[in-house]
Amino acid sequence: MHLLPNIVVVLDDVQLLRREPIRLRWHPGGEPQIEFPHDFRVVVDEVALSAKVVELAGEDSPELILGHHAYRPPYDHDRIGNPMPQRHEPYLDATVHGQKARFLSLFAIGEPRAPMDLCQQIDSFNWCIGQDDHQVDVQVASGVLSVTGPNGVWTMAID
């Protein structure tokens, strides 16, 4: 869900036949700053993305884990046999073990000087993003995801 001008909300719902590890992964556009357990921010050329990732189906939302990719032998050569330079792109994982999961990812594009914890949880069903006149409210309840900001509201059935 994209609420103009600067908000993105993603809800990932998973239901399985049995308990298995369920992982949500995000690749930031640069090395992220992490405010454990659930928040991160990435700054690219004076543009910042503040984010919060929480899991709603279980009792304890998993903390974000930072990792970096690497080519591993024997799959570290290109198609003509030259060794590939390591890039070590960062990624952030949130993982639960269960039969169901519901990940809520909140993103706000802004300035680097914005506070790290731009996304705040109000209660079990409500979050707010931003401050003052630019606050956006996010609600996940009663089979509906809604995102309400100064310019309007998006509502989507989720069950």
């Binding site: 990932d12 998973v14 399985l16 298995e20 590890p21 369920i22 992982r23 949500l24 992964r25 995000w26 690749h27 990719h69 792109e89 990940f103």
Partner: peptide
């Protein structure tokens, strides 16, 4: 592994 998505097991 290299994409922004859900993965199971």
């Amino acid at each position: 592994e290299g994409h922004n998505q859900i993965n199971v097991a």
